[in-house]
């Protein structure tokens, strides 16, 4: 076991923090889209950089990928990737209630991604007495090369990462969106410290 590995209790605690954040982000999404969002249990896995690219490649059947960096206190930081499935692209304007010439597809998807990412991470941060800042969301080409290049340009080390996959399913519209949070090793170690403080209370 290395400093990066989570114990069963730490994993459980992180999962619960994510669950609460996911619930509030889905509530925002449901209000924004005026529909109901079906939630699944989030998947958390530790991945090495080479595995990360393989798993992302499997995930990247997407039409669009939006990336947004987040930065909190105590060295907690990472990159959120929002991935939209191909069948959703023609439905987004309907879903968002935009007129055809009101906003481009790119603008619509960036809007939606920003709501999901910031709501989720603000709730997550508040539970660990932290506060997040965000970089501007960026629309990436939905292919592994573009995503890899983008991740390699980040200022932190991706040798190890915690991949958190959250699926938002809007049942009325057969709309699916996955949020993947990539949290680098040092940030995970910092999160572990915070988690241990929470666990000490129990």
């Amino acid at each position: 076991m290395n400093a990066f590995d989570l114990t069963e209790d730490q994993q459980d605690c992180l999962q619960e923090l994510i669950n609460v954040a996911m619930g509030q982000a889905s509530d925002q999404l449901a209000r924004y889209l005026d529909t109901f969002v079906y939630l699944k249990v989030p998947k958390i896995e530790q991945v090495k950089s080479e595995q990360l690219l393989v798993t992302l490649n499997q995930d990247l059947k997407a039409t669009a990928v939006v990336s947004q960096g987040f930065f909190g206190y105590e060295g907690i930081r990472g990159e959120a990737l929002l991935m939209y499935q191909p069948q959703d692209s023609n439905r987004l304007a309907d879903l968002l209630g935009y007129e055809a010439d009101e906003l481009t597809f790119d603008e619509q998807i960036i809007d939606l991604s920003s709501i999901l990412t910031t709501t989720f991470l603000n709730v997550f941060a508040s539970q660990i007495d932290n506060q997040m800042s965000y970089s501007a969301p960026r629309l990436l080409s939905p292919n592994l090369g573009a995503v890899t290049q983008h991740l390699q340009q980040q200022a932190f080390n991706w040798d190890l990462a915690l991949k958190v996959r959250i699926s938002y399913q809007v049942t009325d519209y057969s709309f699916n969106c996955d949020m993947v949070l990539l949290i680098p090793e040092q940030a995970i170690i910092n999160i572990k410290t915070v988690i241990d403080r929470i666990l000490e209370e129990f």
Partner: peptide, 25 residues
């Protein structure tokens, strides 16, 4: 007791007979 705080979810559980809906944590 749930993190899924959508108003529609709260209605669904009450319709199914729950006494109350409490937010997590």
């Amino acid at each position: 007791i749930s993190a899924d705080v959508q108003p529609e979810m709260q209605s669904r559980v009450m319709d199914l007979g729950a006494k109350a809906f409490l937010r997590k944590p």
